[in-house]
Write a protein that binds this DNA or RNA. Structure first.
Lengths: 179, 179
DNA sequence: CAGATTCCATACGCTATCGTATGGTCTAGC
DNA sequence: GCTAGACCATACGATAGCGTATGGAATCTG
């Protein structure tokens, strides 16, 4: 799915890769549809509750925001999965799930920014900018996998990106630890 | 293609929509492949030479950069086409074309930023940020078509986005006309 | 008008993939 | 050891989409 899209989720291929056959597959799943839906449900869980719960343990909102950015851009499989699903946004099975996940992320991001002292409307706009940066980061990486910023130049580039994304934060509160 | 991806480019469907039949199609094109390749070639032309030539008439580099940003985000069909192609980056027909177009855009953007006084390495990083913002903008719009920033809120949001994208420009040269 | 060329329609074969039908094997509990 | 249920394999039918074969119509050229 992550590499070939929905069309690459093929029952016989899948069965073979698992060392079994179609017969087995159709015992466990009613449909190819049921497999897709089940997979999407699993993904939705992992993408929302898991990550967000992990962030809730951080007290300082600015530190939490930085950590959120770090997690977002560090999870390559997650990023590529999102871009893969993005291309099926029209699909009635994928669309709603994708929409829920994206909204959840956006509202969480907006909230995190507000807690850092950004006024709500600017925070929402900036959350959207961050979301687009996220989608675009993995999208571009797919287009230009050997671009320097995704290889050797990755560290300085990500610093640059985070700098841009954090430009909205009230100066006094950025990097409270002085790092 | 723009809405359903490569899988939606179906000979019979296409022929019917044009009020003709497969027989006709296979007279004009050897293959379905030939149609895809021809289409991609056309797209590549329009996406590079056309737009860039239009920008070369602008003298002031800062004005040109702003105009470039405006054009990028105003061309919705172009944006959605790019995200649609993005999901086929693995395809041997799409990949190379996409890579060329993206590289061309990136180097042009980098050059435009350098001409505005941004140091080369920062310019490159920032061009990548702009490219990801572009990809993400249309990607997110596909996920959340009824999000406010793509409807009523579009104008102020785009202002916000351009503000973020222009943050790197040396202050003295931003908006030279004072607008 | 005759023939050639261009363009299009219908009918067919081929393959991939979905889903089903049917029977086989293995383990648990009696 | 026997039966039931869980799990899997093989073989089949159905459909969608690609590409081809073949003939027809329309236009151009001499």
């Amino acid at each position: 799915m992550r590499e070939g899209g929905l069309a690459a989720v093929v029952v016989e291929t899948l069965a073979e890769r698992l060392g079994t056959t179609k017969g087995s597959f159709y015992w466990h799943f009613k449909d190819r549809d049921e497999l897709v839906v089940t997979g999407l449900e699993l993904w939705e869980q992992e993408m929302t509750e898991a990550v967000i719960a992990r962030l809730e343990t951080v007290g300082d909102p600015v530190v939490r925001l930085r950590q959120l950015f770090d997690l977002m851009f560090a999870d390559q499989p997650g990023g590529f999965m999102t871009t893969a699903l993005l291309s099926h946004a029209q699909d009635p099975r994928v669309g709603p799930v994708l929409q829920r996940v994206t909204r959840r992320r956006l509202t969480y991001l907006t909230g995190a920014l507000v807690e850092c002292g950004v006024p709500p409307d600017r925070a929402h706009h900036h959350a959207v900018v961050a979301a687009t940066a996220y989608l675009g980061y993995f999208g571009l990486q797919r287009q230009l996998p050997d671009e320097a910023v995704f290889g050797a130049e990755a560290k300085p580039y990500l610093r640059h990106l985070l700098h841009v994304l954090e430009a909205e934060l009230p100066a006094a509160r950025v990097r409270p630890s002085g790092a």
